[in-house]
Amino acid sequence: MPRSADANKEMREESRQKILAAALAVFAEKGYNGATITEITKRAGVSRGLASYYFPNKHLLVDELLDAYLDGVAAIIDIPGTADERLAGIIDGVLSGLLNNLPVQGVILALVVQPSTHPIFAEVEARKDERLVRIEDSLRELFTERGAADPAVEEIMLRSVLEGVVYKAAVYGPQYPVEPVRQWLYRMYDLPEPKGTLAGVEPPPVTRLRASERGY
């Protein structure tokens, strides 16, 4: 019996997601320049022809990954509630992403800052400019509600601090003290103390951060 159009569409999307997941894994192991479409195809368990149909080159793979990353940022920002509730939700959303998808965060960070892939990120940002402006304006409105003297600077600093946290967590992996950092951010922004922890367990004491040869 022939598959329905919906079933075919679902299978195509499943194949695309397998390819993207494989690309993230290979980029994490070998970097953008060291990765090949052949290796990504093998890791995904799909034919080279199918992979090339969706993504004829690595550039398009990176474009898709960064596009999804920016959509994820937008989803974290677009939460309801008071200004304080929204700010707490943004902090928790970013830190939960670290706990749940730390290797992915590290790969995305590398793709953003590497000289060979940063121009692709710039292209994605330019294409998503309208959405990014809405994100920036939403954050600035949040800080306006909180009585900030310069909401634009507050928006830039929040993003800078959170991106710095992502960078450090990507470098130091599971030893990075996510929960103590969360509590520090709540205090810095004078938010009510969080109830419970993101991981559901009490964090270990903070130690000195040292990079592992094995990474994360």
Results as ranks from 00 to 15, higher is better:
76 I>S: 02
174 P>K: 15
141 E>P: 00
33 N>E: 15
135 I>H: 08
187 R>P: 02
123 E>V: 09
175 Q>W: 03
203 P>C: 05
137 D>C: 02
12 R>A: 06
35 A>G: 09
205 P>T: 04
174 P>E: 14
60 L>D: 06
4 S>H: 01
112 V>R: 14
147 G>C: 02
7 A>E: 15
114 Q>M: 07
197 T>P: 00
74 A>G: 11
127 R>I: 04
168 K>Y: 09
11 M>Q: 06
111 L>V: 04
87 L>G: 01
109 L>S: 10
124 V>P: 06
54 Y>Q: 01
73 V>E: 12
203 P>V: 02
97 G>P: 04
178 V>T: 13
191 L>K: 08
19 I>A: 04
97 G>T: 07
137 D>N: 12
118 H>E: 12
162 L>A: 07
57 N>T: 09
115 P>K: 03
155 E>H: 12
54 Y>S: 01
106 G>R: 12
147 G>M: 02
15 S>E: 04
66 L>V: 11
200 G>A: 06
187 R>Q: 13
152 A>S: 12
153 V>L: 15
27 F>G: 10
119 P>M: 08
196 G>H: 12
86 R>Q: 15
211 A>E: 14
113 V>F: 03
73 V>N: 08
185 L>Q: 02
91 I>D: 00
118 H>T: 10
42 K>L: 13
112 V>H: 13
